[in-house]
Design a protein around this nucleic acid. Structure first.
Lengths: 195, 195
DNA sequence: GTCTATAGTAAGATAGAC
DNA sequence: GTCTATCTTACTATAGAC
């Protein structure tokens, strides 16, 4: 954390993003100063501006990067036959992907209001693309006759909200293993949607 | 909004809380200045300190007041016979109570990290008391044989997370009436918990 | 009870030396 | 690429006049 002089262009950039992610998640975007981020990285505040144009861009890139990873990771999942199997895969994927990146998830939900209007629109579009992936699974399931949600759009939102909730309480080494948590939520999702 | 002189002790206090609630919900606690709040009320920043000791107390009182109202409103609900009927009443109550106060709900979830440690502990205790009310309904339902959630604690959190989600998308005059939304969520809750 | 004025501090961002 | 120094602005909170 303490340094004096010298060039480190190859590592400073990622370190800035790491520090900002952690600090924004812990204290909130508005409450974190550029000087705090710089101190975590071990540089002076002015040096940050060799890597980012301003604080707003830093926030946007963190959220954008998170959602891009989310969509890419889902796209690379094997796609099982049958909507019920795909719903189960989605449930497990969502829980595990989000639990692995609590800071990024937290920021992506809590700091939406601190985005500029254009940046907000871009993030919201990615979020809706992800939501659409689940909705497709549900409408497929209705067509196949294996799912009967009372309303596919609301069911989509309900499932995502329910699964997101895991991030607020799950801690490793707690009462339940991740496999058990996944099984319990899958049970509730399946029953709720009438599979 | 524009005023010059004079005493208004009886109305300024509530107006400060109203303005702070709206501004904190919109921009976030850390991003809102005392000057902004004062401008909304129509006084100078210094005048706020006749009503609140500091900004932190203002946030705490808003959250505290919201949770106190929530617990009081639930306590005053008629208590139907049977856990299934009580679960249904809880579902409808939660949706309607929260939709009626979007700003307070938003603040209560988003600004937890901006509370001092002592204030956080007090708020967290109230939140857990509310969660316990739902958990009791679920364990009653298991005893009565009308509910079979895979895990009562997780089901409690899942239901609350799912119902909270309504606040992020429901808008009056949209595709569905409030009665319809309530019915759809009740359907999913009932099925998910095996009633 | 509210005003004006201000103390004291810290913010985002930039300029120029090395 | 990073440093030091600084510009400009804004913040919370307080003091004292009315």
């Amino acid at each position: 954390m303490a340094r004096t002089q010298g060039s480190h262009s190859d590592i400073t950039g990622p370190r800035i993003r790491d520090a900002a992610l952690r600090l924004f998640a812990r204290h909130g975007y508005a409450a974190v100063s550029m000087r705090q981020i710089a101190a975590e990285v071990g540089v002076q505040a002015g040096a940050l501006y060799n890597y980012i144009p301003d604080k707003q861009s830093l926030l946007f890139e963190l959220m954008q990067g998170h959602l891009a990873q989310l969509l890419e990771a889902f796209a690379e999942l094997p796609r099982p036959e049958g909507a019920l199997a795909r719903l189960r895969a989605f449930t497990g994927f969502h829980i595990r992907f989000h639990l692995a990146r609590p800071d990024a998830v937290f920021i992506a939900y809590m700091e939406l209001r601190n985005l500029s209007p254009e940046n907000f629109a871009a993030i919201e579009a990615s979020r809706q693309r992800y939501e659409g992936l689940l909705e497709s699974i549900l409408t497929d399931g209705i067509a196949e006759g294996v799912l009967a949600p009372p309303d596919p759009k609301l069911a989509t939102r309900a499932v995502i909200a329910m699964l997101n909730g895991v991030n607020t309480w799950y801690r490793e080494g707690g009462r339940l293993t991740l496999d058990e948590v996944e099984a319990i939520y899958w049970d509730m999702v399946r029953k709720a949607l009438g599979g």
